[in-house]
Amino acid sequence: MKNMRLYNKRKRRNGFFLTLSVLAALFGLVWLGLILTSLFYNGFSSISGDIFTQMTPAPGAKGGLANAIMGSVLMSTLAVVAGTPIGLMAGTYLAEYGRYARLSFFVRFVNDILLSAPSIVIGLFIFELVVFNNPDSYFERACIGLLGTDYCPLGHFSAIAGALSLTVIVIPVVVRTTENMLLLVPNGLREAAAALGAPRNAVIKAVTWRAARAGIVTGVLLAVARISGETAPLLFTVLGNQFWSKDLTQPMASLPVVIYNFAMGPYEDLHRLAWAGALLITIAVLALSIAARILESSRRS
């Protein structure tokens, strides 16, 4: 009978903890569901055609988010265009030329730290590097000498500084996924190409990159998703701009910063615009992640 008691005790304990874990799952999913519901509810009720055609308004005036959307798209594009080649090359080194090199272990470690480093610190880095430049520095004088006062981005807030800080966020994401995807390419493919006499760079470009293409594109999409909601590093690199500006050396509006400023202010109509902006970002991020997922599964099959 002692056995029976023990058995019942074990069964009860099992039931208790499993119930707890089901409750935990329910609890977590309910919160996340609540957030999405109120985001979609508030977002969709605030969205109108004006969002895409009007500039960000002053309090009390009517307006939209057109300049902020343009700024975000422009800076994200610049960051991806600048960051992808660097990340791709570094990832290729880690997976191909330097797979077992001592340097690679260090690069991997540093890259993984950068991957989860606080983005606000990245913003401070670019601020120090670009925005807060000493006007007498050799660096800035060379820049002005080379580009002229109107085009030199150093020494003040600018869209270039914002794009740079996003680039620093893009690079580690692309490095990590590129390396992982290249490591999945079977060595037989590389050996077969090498046996045909192809030099290593040709093997990489014609065989391994091609085999890992879907995975690498997935990484780039994830990087875009990552930066499209990034706010902290933009606060003190691009600042913000109420007007339509395509000048990369000047402050520019961006969606996350506009959301932050509008939401922190006391004006109800600006809060609505903030919700609309938040919804746009969420839809963009979800669409990108889903696209990445579909690519990934198409690669598997």
Partner: peptide, 27 residues
């Protein structure tokens, strides 16, 4: 060409380390 490509990829991974060092140095 292979040596050049090797150099470019190596440079990019050194670049990652340089960014990290730059973050620390600037802070």
């Amino acid at each position: 060409k292979d040596a050049r490509f090797h150099g470019v990829t190596l440079l990019a991974s050194v670049g990652v380390v340089a960014i990290f060092a730059g973050v620390i140095a600037s802070l």
